[in-house]
């Protein structure tokens, strides 16, 4: 496993680099927040009930934190369930469409095939799913849809071989492949089981889940994720045309 060798190499770097990276960022964020908090308090006094009401409304809708570690999503972290705020779209200026992403990957099928084979992934004929999916994230800082990030599934016949993540900015499109993981076949089976359905790919914190129209959630290994099984209609909240993806019906 060559990624492991690189990880080991990182482990041996000079310690002054590590200590440099550990230094906290300059600027005292809590102090800045405290400053603005004091200013807000002054505004409340000056502006009276209207501001007070707005603050109280925000306080009532504070996101609820819930420990989802027992639900198979993660590693003991607490993920914030926040349905009070609509999704904020980020990266709109460099939005990646299905057409642009598909064209980018289609032009590179030969290179991608070579790269996968060189990494030990057997590939005969690589095909790109024409429709990708955006990254939606439910996090402590709100809900976001990253419009300049998009994942596309790469198949060899009916076998899922890689996931291509595309990212776009002012300098162009960048790609990165995920492949070779033991969960790929499980993920492919999950998609086959829901072929033709409009699924949502949702990050809950750093945990990646697939959400069905019935609000059934699964990890990428196909195991049920019960963290969203509280009767809330998460699917309707997050669904829109740009983020759903429809797994191909493959033989």
């Amino acid at each position: 496993m060559n990624g492991k060798r690189i990880l080991d190499a990182v482990g041996g770097i000079d310690y002054d680099l590590i200590e440099d990276a550990e230094r906290p960022r300059r600027g005292n964020r809590p102090a800045r927040l405290a400053k603005w908090g004091a200013l807000a308090a002054c505004l409340m006094v000056l502006l009276g009930s209207a501001v007070t009401a707005a603050v109280l409304r925000r306080a009532r809708s504070e996101p609820k934190a819930r420990d989802m570690s027992g639900d198979g999503a993660g590693d003991g972290a607490v993920y914030t369930v926040n349905l009070t705020a609509a999704c904020v779209r980020t990266g709109t200026e460099w939005k990646l469409t299905d057409e642009a992403g598909y064209a980018y990957l289609s032009e590179r099928v030969v290179v991608l095939t070579s790269a996968l084979r060189a990494s030990g992934v057997p590939v005969e004929t690589l095909s790109v799913s024409p429709r990708g999916y955006a990254h939606i994230r439910m996090g402590a800082d709100g809900n976001t849809i990253s419009e300049n990030w998009r994942d596309f599934l790469l198949y060899d016949g009916n076998r899922l071989v890689a996931i291509a993540t595309l990212y776009r900015d002012e300098t162009g499109i960048f790609d990165s492949l995920a492949f070779g993981a033991p969960w790929f076949s499980d993920y492919a089976d999950l998609l086959k089981a829901h072929a033709g359905e409009e699924l949502i790919y949702l990050y809950i914190g750093d945990a990646e889940t697939i959400l069905t129209p019935e609000n059934d959630a699964y990890t990428l290994a196909g195991t049920p994720f019960s963290g969203l099984a509280d009767g809330t209609d998460y699917y309707s909240f997050f669904r829109n045309e740009e983020v759903v993806f429809i797994p191909a019906i493959v033989p």
């Binding site: 198979g72 999503a73 033991p182 990050y203 945990a207 990646e208 990890t219 290994a221």
Partner: peptide, 8 residues
């Protein structure tokens, strides 16, 4: 664990 994302 065998779950991507669930294991850093």
């Amino acid at each position: 664990a065998q779950k991507r994302g669930a294991n850093r």
